[in-house]
Nucleic acid binder design. Structure first.
Length: 285
DNA sequence: TACACACCTTTC
DNA sequence: AAAGGTGTGT
């Protein structure tokens, strides 16, 4: 275990926002401490006085990479406001929200295979079920290759119990972890085409993998929450209430064309805007 | 190309 | 009915 102190301003990094904005699923908050995992690494993070005290199997460089502290939120903010000044209120509201740089493309990919047509209360135990197959950290693809559909169905995975083993087998056949790493080097749209060959990976899941695992910050996954926020914000989408393959393509192209290399970051703010509106509606009916 | 519909299970 | 959609059919 490493123990270290990391300094950052609240506007630059909000640990809680990053870990509760649908990017990663094996984290929880208890008594002022964020406990959780990023691939093979375990973290205990105590936010305190302009920074955080960290205990982790990862070193400080690993922490800084995970939270993308090598990138400047001020530059991101300036670029977004140059393109769309009306974003200011949303950027302020969720200041410190960042796109994570997860260390395990395998964990990220397998996690998002659990998300289609699903909700968090069910996704989290599914990801934990798969994580438990690993001896140290999240299992490698080779370890996951032994997981059977019947086992996953019995664990409540539903029809994803079929697609997950199929996708894992195909990944292993393509070269496993090394194949995923190679996708980082090439072009975003080429990696996207590759990912969409996998069973259970459509446009949305592919965009999540590109953004959260493969470091393509121009990728803009459009889920039901992002879609709803876009219908609020942009006249062009206000009369289009349904997210389907056609509207997905339109919304995805819109964010990529408008925001370019920061489209993925913007998408994260839109996601939280819609999500928190939901929570408020539920909390006070 | 464009739509409809099934798919597991749970219910922020 | 809807949910951090995808695959298959017409």
């Amino acid at each position: 275990m490493n123990a270290y102190r990391v300094e950052f301003s609240p506007e630059d990094l909000d640990i809680g926002l990053c870990l509760t904005s649908g990017q990663i699923f094996r984290w929880n908050y208890l008594d002022g401490v964020w406990n959780g995992f990023d691939g093979a690494y375990r973290y205990e993070i105590r936010p305190r006085d302009g920074g955080a005290d960290v205990m982790s199997t990862a070193d400080e460089a690993g922490f800084r990479s995970f939270f993308r502290l090598d990138q400047d939120t001020a530059a991101f903010r300036a670029e977004v406001l140059r393109i769309e000044p009306e974003m200011e209120q949303l950027l302020d509201r969720f200041a410190g929200l960042r796109v994570l740089r997860t260390s395990s493309a395998t964990e990220l990919l397998v996690s998002f295979l659990c998300t289609p047509n699903n909700h968090l209360a069910r996704i989290v135990p599914m990801v934990e079920f798969l994580a438990a197959k690993g001896s140290t950290g999240f299992p490698a693809l080779a370890e996951l290759a032994g997981v059977e559909e019947s086992q996953l169905r019995a664990a409540g995975f539903g029809y994803r119990g079929a697609t997950i083993p199929a996708a894992i087998r195909q990944l292993v056949a393509c070269g496993g972890e090394a194949y995923l790493e190679d996708l980082k080097v090439g072009r975003c749209d080429e990696a996207r085409q590759e990912l969409m060959q996998l069973p259970g990976v459509g446009a949305k899941v592919a965009d999540c993998i590109l953004l959260f695992a493969l470091d393509f910050l121009e990728a803009a996954p459009i889920d039901t929450h992002v879609w709803r926020a876009m219908t609020w914000r942009y006249e062009a989408f206000s009369a289009a209430p349904k997210l389907d393959p056609r509207t997905y393509k339109l919304a995805n192209a819109f964010l990529r064309d408008r925001f370019g290399p920061v489209a993925g970051w913007v998408q994260q703010f839109l996601f939280l805007e819609s999500l928190t509106a939901n929570r408020r509606k539920v909390d006070s009916p």
